[in-house]
Amino acid sequence: MDAIVQWFSQIYSFMAVIPFIVFIILWGILYGITKDKKRATRTSMDVTAVLLIGSVSMMIKQIFGTSFGFWFLLLFFLVCAGLLGNLQNRTKGAVDLAKIAKVLLRLGFMLLSVCYILLLVIGVGKYVYIS
């Protein structure tokens, strides 16, 4: 069992290093199977958002020397989930967790993509000018 967990951890680590390449490859595979651009894009965004969480939190750890990045992202997603749940409860009278998860993953993809690019530029600049 430990070997399986370690294998999945290594696969996740490899894919999290290059999340946008994974996005493009996954989009191509899904579009080839479904022939639906919208569905391929949405599913690729959802998977890449999960990869970006790990990437951005590790970049924060490397650049700023703190391990608070993951916990900050988790807190951000939990607060957003609470706000979306409150909004759904007020407007529709019920909370749809699947819809909240979809919105969070797609919002997370957009925000974490910007954070990824920004942290990548900062990290490269720090490496070039400090080394």
Rank of each mutant, 00 (worst) to 15 (best):
residue 130 I to C: 08
residue 30 L to S: 08
residue 99 K to M: 03
residue 39 R to P: 09
residue 83 L to W: 12
residue 31 Y to T: 06
residue 43 T to M: 08
residue 102 K to V: 11
residue 65 G to K: 02
residue 125 G to R: 05
residue 77 F to T: 02
residue 94 A to D: 14
residue 28 G to V: 03
residue 19 P to H: 02
residue 70 F to C: 01
residue 40 A to R: 11
residue 91 T to D: 10
residue 102 K to R: 12
residue 20 F to N: 07
residue 107 L to G: 14
residue 9 S to W: 05
residue 64 F to I: 01
residue 93 G to S: 04
residue 45 M to P: 09
residue 65 G to P: 05
residue 131 S to E: 11
residue 125 G to W: 10
residue 29 I to P: 07
residue 16 A to D: 05
residue 27 W to P: 06
residue 48 T to R: 07
residue 58 M to C: 08
residue 102 K to W: 12
residue 112 L to R: 03
residue 20 F to R: 07
residue 94 A to L: 13
residue 66 T to N: 05
residue 62 Q to I: 02
residue 79 V to M: 00
residue 104 L to P: 04
residue 51 L to E: 07
residue 36 D to R: 01
residue 110 M to Q: 14
residue 25 I to Q: 09
residue 52 L to C: 07
residue 56 V to M: 03
residue 66 T to P: 04
residue 131 S to A: 12
residue 112 L to H: 04
residue 15 M to T: 13
residue 18 I to C: 09
residue 25 I to F: 14
residue 20 F to P: 12
residue 122 I to N: 04
residue 94 A to H: 15
residue 78 L to Q: 05
residue 96 D to V: 12
residue 26 L to E: 13
residue 23 F to C: 01
residue 55 S to L: 05
residue 99 K to F: 03
residue 44 S to G: 15
residue 20 F to E: 07
residue 117 I to L: 10
residue 11 I to P: 06
residue 83 L to E: 13
residue 14 F to L: 15
residue 53 I to P: 01
residue 84 L to Y: 07
residue 22 V to F: 15
residue 31 Y to W: 08
residue 16 A to G: 04
residue 43 T to D: 15
residue 76 F to P: 00
residue 29 I to Y: 08
residue 52 L to Q: 05
residue 111 L to W: 07
residue 60 I to S: 02
residue 127 Y to N: 09
residue 75 L to W: 00
residue 70 F to P: 03
residue 44 S to A: 15
residue 90 R to H: 12
residue 42 R to K: 13
residue 103 V to P: 06
residue 57 S to D: 01
residue 46 D to L: 06
residue 73 L to D: 00
residue 91 T to G: 04
residue 42 R to C: 10
residue 113 S to G: 13
residue 43 T to L: 11
residue 125 G to D: 08
residue 77 F to N: 00
residue 76 F to N: 00
residue 42 R to V: 14
residue 49 A to H: 08
residue 25 I to N: 12
residue 127 Y to E: 11
residue 91 T to W: 12
residue 66 T to F: 00
residue 126 K to M: 09
residue 91 T to H: 09
residue 74 L to R: 02
residue 17 V to Q: 14
residue 31 Y to G: 07
residue 115 C to P: 03
residue 9 S to C: 02
residue 80 C to K: 03
residue 97 L to S: 09
residue 118 L to M: 15
residue 50 V to G: 13
residue 15 M to V: 12
